[in-house]
């Protein structure tokens, strides 16, 4: 176990090894009456191409961290550097560009557009991407080549989530953020989704960050970090000890 003391964090690594780095992130939600400290000072380097799992109970701050890293929210203090450039100083339009060009998202409840077929849900994103994978190819990568023209209402939960994976990776994102990707799925279909994630991570080299409270998933990661009460309490170099098919919960 290798615990990083945040006060002695090394300078951000600007060589090719680090894609995204966070320094001194704090986040305070001010509801007027009470102030909630969601993050209390996070330093983190996300390495290019790795599959990083963030574990933590609800309220640990993992979703807040993901929102900030994903360009959906800004920290109260601290900075996030993507390829060495600050994200926190960007405008809303700048954050939209960051998400549009570099980031893929996978949501717990899939968030597919119900009025579009699987293929069209993927095309939605490839139409605005610079160098996309054709939607059919992306769906094939997640094992849905046979379900191209089905609407979300005609797909199972696992299938819907795999469409979401295909939609997220079709733009060849540098970063893939997955928020409880198996949270709404049973173990068997969850494994299928994790296999798809594992596959695209290896195939495309997309740096993948998965947040979950499912400890079992940690075994397929390169690294696992644990959050508690707004702080990183543990970083574990797992080194992909298991394949997704060997996981269960």
């Amino acid at each position: 176990m290798n615990v990083l003391a945040r006060s002695q964090a090394p300078a951000p690594d600007t060589d090719t090894g680090v894609l995204l780095s966070a320094r001194g992130l704090t986040k305070v939600y001010d509801t007027g009456e009470v102030k909630v400290q969601a993050l209390r000072g996070i330093d983190l380097d996300v390495r290019r191409g790795e599959l990083l799992v963030m574990l933590g109970a609800s309220g640990s701050g993992k979703s807040t961290l993901l929102n900030i890293l994903g360009g959906l929210d800004r920290p109260t203090e601290g900075d996030v550097l993507f390829e060495g450039k600050s994200l926190t100083r960007r405008s809303d339009a700048g954050l939209t560009r960051y998400r549009r060009n570099h980031v893929g998202f996978i949501f717990q409840f899939y968030n597919l557009v119900p009025s579009l077929t699987a293929r069209e849900n993927v095309a939605l994103v490839t139409e605005i991407a610079r160098d996309p994978i054709p939607p059919e190819e992306a769906l094939e990568m997640v094992g849905l080549a046979a379900r191209l023209d089905h609407f979300p209402a005609e797909l199972s939960g696992g299938e819907q989530q795999r469409v979401a994976v295909a939609r997220a990776i079709a733009k060849r994102p540098a970063l893939l953020f997955c928020d409880e990707p198996t949270g709404a799925l049973d173990s068997k279909t969850g494994v299928q989704v994790l296999e798809a994630l594992d596959h695209v991570n290896r195939e495309l080299g997309a740096t993948t960050v998965v947040i979950t409270h499912n400890v079992g998933i940690a075994d397929m990661s390169d690294r696992t970090i644990r959050l508690s009460d707004g702080l990183i309490v543990d970083i574990d170099e797992v080194g992909r000890t298991k394949k997704p098919s060997e996981l269960s919960w």
Binding site: A93, R97, R100, L124
Partner: peptide
């Protein structure tokens, strides 16, 4: 649906 699209990078 629209918010999801915003997350996906739609302006």
């Amino acid at each position: 649906e629209l918010a999801s699209l915003r997350v996906l990078g739609f302006t």
